Simulated scan of single mutants.
Amino acid sequence: MTETHTTVPPGAPVFPPGRYGRRREPGRRRPVLVGVLVAALAGVLVLAATQLYARYGDPNYDAQMITYAEVTDTGVRVDFRVTVPAGGSAVCLLRARSHDGAEVGRVEVPVAAAPGERHLNVRHRIATTARPFIGEVLRCRPAG
């Protein structure tokens, strides 16, 4: 007699012995290992977030691009505004790019505010290796 859906009792399927390999019992869970892995992952993510915030996210050091002008074959002038803590100093990274997007000039510019001053208007010329299309401020960070 062959088995049909009416002759097999409901529940777990019945497989012919030796035909599909050894059936495994469901493995036991390892909550300690999972907990350690989750804690390690959380630690790595917190460390990465801290490093990225320190590098890019300090709101006390901010730069706003005003304009770029005087584009020549050897450089471009960049005007920008920097916000620093009162009387503080920063280092701003400026970049010039060509029309195809290649970087043709890069310079770090130190800026310092007078005591009680927080906002600085800065004008700087970026020397380039080819004719630039645009000048820009990438970021400002604390000096030191």
Rank of each mutant, 00 (worst) to 15 (best):
V36M: 14
R77H: 01
C140T: 09
A69M: 02
A69W: 11
T6C: 03
A54Q: 15
E103P: 13
A86M: 00
A42T: 12
P26M: 10
R106T: 12
V44Q: 11
F133M: 01
Y56K: 00
S98C: 00
F133Q: 06
T72R: 11
T67G: 02
V91T: 12
V34W: 14
T50Y: 15
P10Y: 11
P16L: 09
A114N: 04
L138A: 05
E103T: 12
V38I: 15
R95K: 06
A48H: 10
R23A: 05
L94S: 07
Q51C: 13
A49G: 08
T4I: 10
V38S: 14
L94P: 03
G75H: 02
R106G: 06
P13L: 02
M1A: 12
H5N: 15
T2Y: 10
Y68Q: 14
R19G: 01
R22C: 09
V122G: 01
V76I: 09
V91P: 12
A143P: 08
A42L: 09
E3K: 10
R81G: 00
P115F: 11
G75M: 09
E3W: 12
S89E: 04
P115H: 08
T128R: 07
G35H: 09
R139P: 01
G144V: 09
G87I: 01
A12T: 12
P16K: 05
L41R: 02
A102G: 09
L94A: 02
I134T: 12
V109A: 02
C92S: 03
E108S: 11
A39H: 14
V46F: 06
T129Y: 12
R24T: 06
P10N: 06
H124N: 02
A96K: 01
T72W: 11
V44H: 05
A127P: 13
G43D: 04
H124T: 03
D100C: 02
E3F: 15
V91F: 11
R125V: 13
T50P: 13
D100R: 04
D58V: 07
E3Y: 14
R123C: 03
R97D: 01
D62F: 15
G101L: 14
P17A: 02
V91K: 12
L52E: 14
L41Y: 07
Y53A: 13
R19L: 14
R28G: 14
F133K: 03
Q51N: 14
A130Y: 06
A90N: 07
T83M: 01
E136Q: 15
R29W: 09
V34M: 09
R24A: 06
A102V: 04
P142D: 02
A54T: 15
A39L: 15
P59G: 04
V38E: 09
E25R: 08
R28K: 13
A42Y: 03
A113Y: 11
L45C: 09
M65G: 06
R118H: 07
G87C: 00
P132H: 05
G135E: 00
V46R: 04
P132N: 01
T128E: 05
